[in-house]
Each structure stands twice: as structure tokens, then as C-alpha cells.
């Protein structure tokens, strides 16, 4: 069972930036409906990409430092990190099939 793990301003460097594997960060907030729509899809994708991509989520409301460091101005935003650098940037709600396409292109 792979489920997205919650990250915050305090552990972001360690969990996301210093990770060996690819890490996807879901920037979200509880008031954002498309974020809530995306959450169950990311739960499923975390399962599908288990061992390949680590799925994490960061509440922008609670963690303004990380959100502003990556200039997040629209949520949901998904950033895919490879060795500490964002390599892919997905803005807004997308259906599962489309996200899979994006992740496959970014992770190969």
C-alpha cells in the first residue's frame, strides 16, 4: 500500500529535495474544490507508480514558505522533483488518464 505522505515547511528539504527517487508534490488547500477532486486520483496513482515515484502533499495554507519558494499561485499544482530540482509542472485539475500521460513523459 503506497499512499501520498504529508510534507510541510519543516521536513520538505529532507523528504522531497534530498530524496533519491522521483518525488511528486501536490500543492493543495482544503478550500480548493479541484484539489479535493484530484486527491482520490493521486491516491490511486500513488499505488500505480509505487516504487517509481513518491507521492507527497503539501497544504499551502499551513506551509506558506515552501509555496512561495516555488511561486505557487494556483492550486492544485503538481511539481515533480528529480534530485532536488522541479522537472515538471502541472497546473489545475486533470483526469487520471491525462495525468498518467504527463507523469510517464516526465519520468522517462
Amino acid at each position: 500500500m503506497s499512499k501520498p505522505i504529508t510534507v510541510d515547511d519543516a521536513n520538505f528539504d529532507q523528504t522531497v529535495l534530498q530524496a533519491e527517487a522521483l518525488v511528486l508534490v501536490d500543492f493543495w488547500a482544503p478550500w480548493c474544490r479541484p484539489c479535493l477532486m484530484l486527491a482520490p486520483i493521486l491516491d490511486e496513482l500513488a499505488e500505480d507508480y509505487s516504487g517509481k515515484i513518491t507521492f507527497t502533499r503539501l497544504d499551502v495554507d499551513q506551509n506558506p514558505k515552501t509555496a512561495s519558494r516555488y511561486q505557487i499561485m494556483s492550486i492544485p499544482t503538481l511539481l515533480l522533483f528529480k534530485k532536488g530540482e522541479p522537472v515538471s509542472h502541472i497546473v489545475g485539475y486533470k483526469p487520471k488518464a491525462e495525468l498518467k500521460r504527463d507523469l510517464d513523459t516526465a519520468s522517462t
Binding site: 478550500w31 480548493c32 474544490r33 479541484p34 499544482t77 509542472h89
Partner: peptide
């Protein structure tokens, strides 16, 4: 995502 938005509540 850098200032252009389609969702005000978000």
C-alpha cells in the same frame, strides 16, 4: 499558474 487563474475560489 503564475498569475493567470481559472478558479477564483482556489
Amino acid at each position: 499558474g503564475k498569475g493567470v487563474s481559472y478558479c477564483a475560489t482556489c
